[in-house]
Design a protein around this nucleic acid. Structure first.
Lengths: 131, 131
DNA sequence: TTATTTGTATTATTATAAATAATACAAATG
DNA sequence: CATTTGTATTATTTATAATAATACAAATAA
């Protein structure tokens, strides 16, 4: 699980960290039931503050991507609670993304090809997660 | 061209306005060559500051979605300059979006169906733009 | 038991960004 | 000439991001 934060980016550190953990789950680098580093470990490894990491873990828990055990830290456990809310958010983002892409000349076929590649990668990752 | 800003949202006003204009172009509500309201008109209509609108127009120009004529205001004129840079940004966002969606139980078929609908809507919008 | 580690709550401080406000100015228009 | 355009400037207020230094209850391991 590589974490790489860009402090020069306009994207807040806690958002970058949140996104990379979600991507790590999707890629299968973080498997179901696996433990994340403790907030203090993660903070030291990433060179950021403990409370920033704590904020990220709290967000991921609220979003239903992890559960938090006091003693053993955060555990990867994707739940499907707020599924509808998050799917609506995704649809709205998709329209913006597709609009930007197609205005910049990306064809429908190329867009679908990129989506297909991403889905394929995640399917194999999900299969490996149960070995 | 409806502009609806949510000042209670965590998304900055200037980002909301920028996104809605881009979506308006994609939907064909803003046609090629059409004039946007002047910064002062837009500011009054949306109930926000002139400089906030100016910031949005400057961003849209830098992204290649509009051109700015000093006298007649902003003109819709999608260019394909920074196409590669923006397409890479889209790909990165897509991976995050697909990861979130599929972890929340959205199937590949459903995701592609949503994308297809959006593309269809934009194609008819683009056709109407040349009538 | 005792000592340690966990997530978390609290409070304060600094730095940055967002948004507004009040002007002012050059360029273009009528 | 007077007006309107985008834009530059400067200042101020507000909100957020991030760090920092503690502290504490709960759980674990000695």
């Amino acid at each position: 699980m590589f974490i790489e934060l860009n402090t020069a980016s306009s994207i807040p550190i806690y958002t970058q960290l949140r996104n990379q953990i979600v991507l790590g789950i999707g890629r299968g680098e973080l498997k179901m039931g696996e433990h994340l580093p403790t907030v203090r470990q993660m903070a030291e490894a990433a060179g950021i503050n403990v409370m920033t990491v704590n904020k990220v873990y709290a967000i991921l828990r609220a979003e239903g991507f992890i559960e938090i055990d006091r003693r053993h830290g955060a555990v990867v456990c994707p739940r499907k609670e707020n599924a509808e809310a998050l799917q609506e958010k995704c649809s709205a983002q998709l329209e913006l993304l597709i609009t930007e892409s197609s205005l910049k000349g990306m064809s429908r076929e190329r867009f679908f090809a990129i989506c297909g590649e991403i889905f394929d990668r995640q399917q194999t990752a999900a299969e490996n997660a149960f070995l």
